[in-house]
Nucleic acid binder design. Structure first.
Ligand SMILES: [Mn+2]
Ligand SMILES: [Mn+2]
Ligand SMILES: [Zn+2]
Ligand SMILES: [Zn+2]
Lengths: 138, 138
DNA sequence: AAAACAATGCAATGGAATTGCATTAGTTGG
DNA sequence: CCAACTAATGCAATTCCATTGCATTGTTTT
């Protein structure tokens, strides 16, 4: 097992089983967010439900965050270290390229403050930008 | 048929059938976005698939916009007049209250500009804010 | 009225999320 | 090391929702 994989799992008290190591390694290799079925295909013939539960566990433990990019299929990407069981802190923008269909985390692109109507208070924000990514820009 | 209902449908060249009038009236009564199953329950025993196709038609014709609020069930709300077949122009923030679970359009709350990384360009943005709404505030 | 087109209702399909449960692997106290 | 317990897995089954096919019905056009 790569040391980084081991560390990621250990940091969040997730016991490093074979499947979890496979999924974590796959997540570490990505430069875009991936869907459950992406993982299933890549890890076939591994059991679909075990993958599902692995991702659920990762999500609960603050290892990955879900990105609803409007394409129908939720995508997953590794969290920053600061995330934990109780709260995710990925307050960055997510970008869905309408050309290559990839969804990226933009960790340096923070969600700006918005002034809500009076008596509304916010605990969480989610900004999806659609457009053309750098690789697809002509 | 209420004149406003008739007008909404006529404006977008949607022929006013019985089902479409029912659904449009229901949408007009709401002060929060509603899901397909909300409509189904409210209009029971009307045919589920016809409701589904009605909403699809409304969406395509620029009568309603979809809100993916992260709750799993897509919500629908009436568009502003400026929306049309080719493009929706509802660039406002959507708010999902974690207390009452309702999802609201905040038409006066525009999505702020974000500075994307170099060579990324945006065509569309979607901002969901979660928190406590005015009615649920302490 | 006939033909053409649009909308509907019901059946059927398809896909993905979720759960139940029996089995297997891993951990811990004695 | 063994028994007892807990965690993780694999497979079947369920549930839920979106979507399509098709025959029927309603509407518009000529
Ligand atoms: Mn992210
Ligand atoms: Mn809206
Ligand atoms: Zn791209
Ligand atoms: Zn509320």
């Amino acid at each position: 097992m790569k040391p980084i994989t081991e560390q990621k799992l250990a940091n969040k008290n997730v016991t490093p089983t074979a499947m979890r190591i496979l999924v974590m390694n796959m997540l570490l290799e990505q430069n875009a967010a991936i869907s459950l079925s992406d993982i299933e295909k890549s890890l076939a013939p591994a059991d679909r439900i075990t993958i599902y539960r692995t991702i659920k566990t990762f999500e609960e433990k603050g290892l990955v965050h879900v990105i609803e990019d409007g394409t129908g299929a939720p995508k997953y990407a590794l969290c920053l270290e600061e995330c934990d069981v109780n709260e995710h802190h990925d307050l960055h923008v997510h970008f869905n390229c309408i050309s290559c269909k990839e969804t990226f985390c933009l960790p340096n692109c923070k969600i700006p403050d918005v002034s809500l109507p009076v008596n509304f208070s916010s605990t969480e924000m989610n900004l999806i930008v659609k457009g053309i990514c750098d690789k697809c820009a002509n």
